[in-house]
């Protein structure tokens, strides 16, 4: 299980984490919400090993996959090569070939495999980035507001794409968002954080199946509650 125990971390004397502990459900999706600048990205970076905590232990996994807010594709490589790049030197070519094809199809970008990122819309680029995040099959996938810069329609399409990929090959996903609706659509576990130093304001486990959530009374209440807490 991925967890953080008694984490302490300060930046320039400012305490971001002070004796902070959290556990994440295995092979489920955890959504983290909180006010802007509360340390959500730092939390992901600690889990990813990019930031070392001053104190405490991180029971994380050795390597993680990461979906960023921006697609972060290399402009000089085609979509295909961008996705394949993260598997190079790690798997035999034939295996890379079949995996990349599988995920490009699953994310709906097969037709654009030979396109360069600059020739694609923002939504297609983020689909390619999702393909890359999933093709790199790690037990833990971290996502830092991956749908933030997309329009609402594309956002919900991509949430569906992501859920479908996850259903096919479940893994632990920890994602950060500002959007209560997105949180309720995606999460098995929802965690709401406070301002610095970060505390857990509320933690909810949603048992209800995802396709039964839309329009559900309790879910709507939860959404409203999340919104109020995030707005603080």
């Amino acid at each position: 299980m991925v967890k953080m125990t008694a984490i302490g971390k300060s930046f320039d004397g400012l305490k971001v984490f002070d004796n902070f502990s959290i556990g994440f459900l295995e092979d489920k999706i955890t959504v983290i919400l909180g006010p802007s600048g509360c340390g959500k990205t730092t939390l992901l970076n600690i889990l990813a090993g990019l930031v070392k905590p001053d104190r405490g232990t991180v029971g994380s996994l050795d390597t993680v996959s990461y979906l960023f807010q921006e697609p972060r594709l290399l402009p000089w490589l085609t979509v295909w090569d961008n996705v394949a790049l993260v598997l190079r030197d790690k798997l035999p070519d034939a295996e890379i070939q079949s995996r990349v094809e599988y995920y490009l199809r699953a994310t709906g970008v097969s037709d654009y495999a030979r396109f360069y990122p600059a020739g694609l819309s923002g939504g297609l680029r983020q689909r390619a980035a999702i393909a890359r995040a999933f093709v790199y099959e790690m037990p833990l996938l971290l996502m830092d507001e991956p749908f933030k810069s997309l329009d609402i329609k594309t956002r919900y399409q991509l949430i569906e794409v992501l859920l479908e990929l996850w259903r096919q090959k479940p893994r632990t996903i920890i994602t950060v968002t500002h959007d209560p609706q997105e949180a309720v659509m995606l999460g098995d576990q929802i965690v709401i954080l406070s301002q610095k130093p970060v505390r857990i304001l509320k933690e909810v486990i949603i048992e209800l199946e995802r396709d039964e959530r839309a329009g559900d009374e309790g879910m709507l209440r939860l959404e409203k509650e999340i919104l109020e807490m995030v707005l603080g």
């Binding site: 990019l50 993680v64 996959s65 921006e70 190079r88 030197d89 790690k90």
Partner: peptide, 21 residues
Amino acid sequence: PELQQMLMMYRVKTKRVFTHF
């Protein structure tokens, strides 16, 4: 720097970072 961080996260080998980035 964002692309560099991405390459690091995905553990892309140094020689490939050189040729591809």
